[in-house]
């Protein structure tokens, strides 16, 4: 109770802090892109832009529902395993002669069902989402291996797999950019322009108040997990076709990158705060930074360290900023201020 009360008390401070972080991360991203285009050799070519979009597509797609879930104060660490399991399922179905047009929507449904399992444990049983999704992270990946085992299914039709890596006509714009933009727009609309969005923010910033306001918090979270699973299923289809290879280890470890990108984009891990444009900037920044470092022949060890550090900094920096601002404000006013919360 007191945590909730404390959080509410700091709302004003939080909002301004994160609003700044959003803008900051967008500015940083733009500045970095300009820097990379001008000073990293080969970064600015249109082909590299295509590569970059293809590379960040799965991260961006998974980050959309992840943002909504984290804003409600929960987390879904099983997304990458869901991608792996749907990819395995796709391979098994393809091998048994199911037409691709049936497989693809089925994969989205499978993903949704896997998400519903997460949602059930989190909402119906009230279990901590961290523990549940660490469990299903292992479970879904394990099942992916049980399904497909040691084989890779690779004989998907060339027409489909070349669409996923192709570009629109003669332009360097990748085909996948279109659904990416559409989905990002949809999620942004849901979060920022629809009543559901406000309910999502409300359940994340003050669960008790949200429940009193008549928001069906549990139901809302359940359907967010279903959505997350469905999008992971879609990514499973994309991943399989893009690499024309259905394998149990597809997207292994990607959940960490997704969470890192979302937090980098200014979403609070405690819930209640965050914007989708910020997250998009976070995804672009993370991916283009890795792309540029690779082009500059920085070793993969350094990339590992950079990803980890960015994750920590993305939470640490706003905390420190907030504290500095708090100190400044206190000095400026020297009047009574509420004691800082733990």
């Amino acid at each position: 109770m007191s945590v909730e009360a404390g959080r509410q008390g700091r709302d004003g401070l939080h909002l301004s802090r994160f609003a700044t972080w959003d803008v900051a991360i967008i500015v940083v991203t733009v500045v970095f892109l300009i820097f990379a285009v001008t000073s990293v050799q080969h970064f600015g070519t249109s082909q590299n832009a295509t590569f970059l979009v293809l590379e960040l597509a799965p991260i961006l797609l998974l980050a959309l529902p992840m943002t909504l879930i984290i804003v409600t104060g929960e987390i879904d660490l099983s997304v990458a395993s869901t991608v792996g399991l749907t990819s395995s399922a796709m391979g098994v179905m393809w091998n048994s002669g199911v037409p691709l047009e049936t497989i693809m929507p089925l994969c989205v449904v499978i993903g949704a069902v896997l998400g519903a399992v997460n949602g059930f444990f989190v909402t119906a049983l009230g279990l901590p989402s961290l523990a549940v999704t660490i469990g299903t992270l292992a479970l879904y990946r394990g099942l992916a291996f049980v399904l497909l085992g040691d084989t890779a299914v690779a004989d998907f039709p060339r027409s489909h797999s070349s669409w996923t890596i192709g570009t629109i006509g003669e332009t360097p714009i990748p085909n996948v950019l279109v659904p990416m933009i559409v989905l990002a727009g949809l999620f942004a609309a849901v979060l920022h322009a629809m009543p559901v969005g406000r309910a999502i923010f409300a359940s994340g910033s003050n669960r008790v108040a949200a429940a009193f306001a008549g928001i069906p918090v549990a139901k809302l979270k359940f359907w967010l997990y279903v959505t997350s699973g469905a999008v992971a299923g879609l990514v499973g289809v994309f991943w399989t076709l893009r690499f024309s290879s259905a394998r149990a280890d597809n997207a292994h470890g990607l959940e960490l990158t997704v969470v890192a990108a979302v937090l980098l984009g200014g979403v609070s891990i405690f819930g209640g705060k965050g914007t989708l444009p910020g997250v998009l900037a976070g995804v672009v920044l993370l991916s283009s930074l890795q792309n540029a470092l690779r082009l500059a022949n920085v070793s993969s060890e350094a990339l590992t360290v950079v990803t980890g550090s960015l994750l920590i900094i993305s939470v640490l920096a706003p905390n420190i900023l907030g504290r500095v601002r708090g100190v400044l404000r206190r000095r400026l006013r020297r009047t009574h201020v509420p004691a800082p919360n733990p």
Partner: peptide, 23 residues
């Protein structure tokens, strides 16, 4: 001191420490 949630902090150092091992 950094007030970073343990999950995020140690997820980050999972990468960082492994990177150090690689180095």
């Amino acid at each position: 001191f950094g007030r970073v949630p343990p999950l995020v902090a140690t997820l980050g150092t999972l990468y960082v420490f492994r990177g150090v091992v690689y180095f």
